[in-house]
Design a protein around this nucleic acid. Structure first.
Lengths: 186, 186
DNA sequence: TATATTGTTAAATAAATTTTTAATAAAGTT
DNA sequence: AACTTTATTAAAAATTTATTTAACAATATA
């Protein structure tokens, strides 16, 4: 019955390919290139891979694999592993989506908070100077106040984002929104 | 003292420009084009704008403004308003970052959950067939089980993401991570 | 230390996206 | 209903981004 055997093997490959396609498709949300998205999705069903295995599997150039892997390492979706004996570097995909989520979004949001908070602090300084400056007309003072308050209001959001980041990084968020594990097949 | 007046006006403009620059810079995180990012940041300090005002202010073409505005509407960062008397359409920027956050990320995560869950369900069906199929070799069954369990495990994440979405959309998340409002200047 | 192998950087090519100009459609006014 | 104004769509141009080929650097092995 080697025909049926083959059929089963094909079914397994089809099953993997469906998931690989879906992961790759949604990974544009993580701001990675199509090559990196395909690579991660492929690695999701592998123990570990070398650069040469990657380029064979995806039929792409080695530098493309190299840059893709580095990008994926930046967002902690891939880690380098040490494999004794082999002098090729080996890499493994992070298979825990919670960890990828944490690293990616916290990194992203931290950048957003930092850049915008810096700008806001500087802008509020400027606006306070206009407000205090005796030669400013009343209309200008009013305008400066309006913007100052608008910025102050927006800081509520950035502070909240900071708290969200901390709750995610410490795992405290799972007290509020728990993980619901199901049991396995075996 | 019209010189000092001018200086104050310039200071106000500088203050705005700092924030506009920062918002535009971090808006690549929201997957919008530079034109749309600049547009939103500019509108953040305006009551409302028409397409013609946008193209004058940003020195870009009208179709570019038109498509940018539509993209911003999709992620609820801009809303159309009715202005009696004017036959030009007018648009306002959503200035509440919490609302933008909610719409953007929930939309994004919903898409991720839907696409991946569909693929996982189909893949698990295939894998179950392999497992049940009497002609599958023990090695194949073992492989199919391994992948099945890996996918089952990942569903914990997608279910959690669904719960996160719901907590954000209903505002329940603020019970867990509260907003900390500061008082205004006036 | 020389050599072979692997990984990375740089320049060039290819592909995709963004923006503009030009044409069309839609809406409002007289 | 014709005309004017505004917004959108389609095609073309320009820009940016992704990928590859080729050269270089680094590493490990003999």
């Amino acid at each position: 019955m080697s025909e049926n055997n083959e059929k089963s093997q094909i079914k397994i490959e089809e099953a993997k390919d469906k998931v690989i396609g879906a992961i790759a498709e949604t990974m544009d949300l993580y701001g990675v290139t199509p090559a990196a998205a395909n690579l991660y999705a492929t690695m999701y069903f592998k123990d570990q891979m070398t650069l040469d295995e990657m380029r064979t599997e995806l039929e792409m150039s080695k530098p493309s694999m190299s840059t893709s892997v580095r990008k994926l390492q930046e967002i902690a979706m891939v880690k380098k592993t040490y494999t004794r004996g082999s002098r090729k570097h080996t890499y493994v995909a992070e298979k825990n989506f919670f960890r990828s989520f944490m690293v990616f979004y916290c990194q992203m949001w931290e950048r957003e908070v930092k850049i915008n908070m810096n700008a806001i602090e500087e802008a509020q300084d400027d606006l306070l100077n206009v407000i205090k400056e005796s030669s400013s007309t009343p209309a200008m003072v009013a305008e400066a106040k309006k913007y100052y308050d608008q910025l102050e209001e927006s800081k509520t959001y950035y502070h909240w984002l900071e708290d969200l980041i901390e709750n995610i990084e410490t795992g405290k968020i799972f007290e509020c929104i728990p993980k619901k594990q199901k049991e396995s097949l075996t």
